[in-house]
Amino acid sequence: MFFVGEERIFACTGIFIDFDGSTSTSTVLTSASLVRASADEYKIADDLKIKVYLPNKQLVFGTLERCNLSYNIAVVSVKGFRCLRTAELHNQVQIQPLKVKEVVAVGRIFESGKLMATSGILAEKGSNLDCKELRISTCKVTKAGMGRPLVDFDGNFIGLNFYGIEETHYLFF
């Protein structure tokens, strides 16, 4: 969550990744929409305060470590918490053409911490946006679900979801 003062500006979902091998810090991969300035989408917001809602229901401050506004991804670190189950980004899943691949977009509801999920399939058509790395799934993701992981039914991390009115774009990892 991104705050200015005590006012929540934006909330989205993320996924824990193994970033630096630290035993006292966890790292979250999420959407850069979390840190974008509302007046200028190509700029990181000033006076950035990021709060992370952990699986153990603690609310802690996070630090923006890396951000790429073009790819719409951000990496946030959380000190004093170590997530032992992280997404494996280095194990690339091979997606076979013309084979229906069922997937699930998974996230948490901010207020309650309960899991939410929506299922769909990976679409064969490409994105109409000007980023060739973006792909499309039929999972319906809300703005609050941006940054949530897209996984297959074998538990493999496929990519990071974004929001779209007609279709859901995701960045394939």
Rank of each mutant, 00 (worst) to 15 (best):
N91R: 15
Q96C: 07
E41H: 01
P149F: 02
M116T: 14
V52M: 07
S112G: 02
S112H: 02
L134Q: 06
Q58T: 13
K132N: 08
R36A: 01
F110S: 06
A74N: 02
T142V: 00
G113A: 06
V151Q: 03
E102L: 08
G120F: 03
R36P: 03
C139H: 11
R108Q: 12
N91C: 09
D152S: 10
S38V: 09
H90K: 15
R82V: 14
V106G: 01
V103H: 14
A32T: 03
D152N: 15
G62I: 05
A123D: 11
D154H: 14
E88K: 14
A74Q: 06
E41T: 08
I136F: 04
L134I: 10
T86E: 10
N161R: 06
D46C: 01
N128W: 05
N156Y: 14
L69S: 04
L129Y: 07
N128G: 13
A74V: 12
V76Q: 08
R108K: 13
E41D: 10
G113L: 03
R36E: 03
S137G: 08
E111Y: 05
F157T: 06
Q92A: 11
G120D: 11
P55F: 08
F153P: 00
V141M: 06
N91F: 08
K49E: 11
A32Y: 01
C83S: 13
R36Q: 10
V151G: 01
C139D: 07
A74E: 04
L115Q: 08
L89T: 12
K114S: 14
M116D: 04
T142G: 01
A74M: 08
P149Y: 00
K57T: 15
V93E: 11
T118R: 09
G107Q: 08
S31T: 15
Y42F: 07
L98P: 00
G159Q: 07
K49R: 15
R148Q: 14
L98N: 04
L59K: 09
K143V: 06
L98K: 04
S31E: 07
L69C: 03
E65K: 04
Q96M: 12
S119I: 12
D46R: 03
R85T: 14
L48Y: 03
L134Y: 13
G147I: 10
G62V: 02
V93N: 05
I95K: 14
L160I: 12
I158H: 09
L54Y: 04
I158W: 11
Q96E: 14
A74K: 05
N56A: 13
Y71K: 09
N68M: 04
R82G: 06
K51F: 01
C67V: 15
A39K: 02
